[in-house]
Amino acid sequence: MSFVRLFQTLLTGPRVTEPAALSPAATTDDVGAAGAELRAVLANLYDGRSLRIRAVDAGSTNAEELELLALGNAYYDFERFGLSFVASPRHADILMVTGPVVRNLEAALRTTYDAAPHPCLVVAVGDGACNGGIWRGSYAVVGAVDQVIPVHIRIPGDPPSPAEILQGLAAGLRRPR
């Protein structure tokens, strides 16, 4: 009986994945230096058909983490774009950094970047990561991610919603699909 219920849930559960989540957002052509580098890297990596992400919390408030986690839920299902989270920076193509870089994590963030095989794209997720956010200036905070490691894509927001993260990625990777 319990098995029936389980398989009912598995096979006939609601399907809510939203087709529009990674719609071709404003893919501008003024890509800048970081963008040009990005293009070249992606061209070498089969247009980024498989990009593996390593999330790095450099001092966020954990709201960003909840939103990154939400990327995997049935509504957004970022895996259908060939994205996935991996456990080791050694496996990663993208570092997604959240939060203003705090002093206590500055070295760890550097280590993580160093541990990842290059080319490795860095995405700053959230206001804190993009510019330090409201924490800017504090004795315990270093500031935006680009003060520590190079940043290729910035996704502002406090925190950016999963849809915004996907759109930001799509714009950055220029992957309208």
Binding site: Y46, N73, R80
Partner: peptide
Amino acid sequence: LQGRHGPPVLLPYW
């Protein structure tokens, strides 16, 4: 089975 669309089946090749 989780109610998601899921990754492309060719993803492992990429």
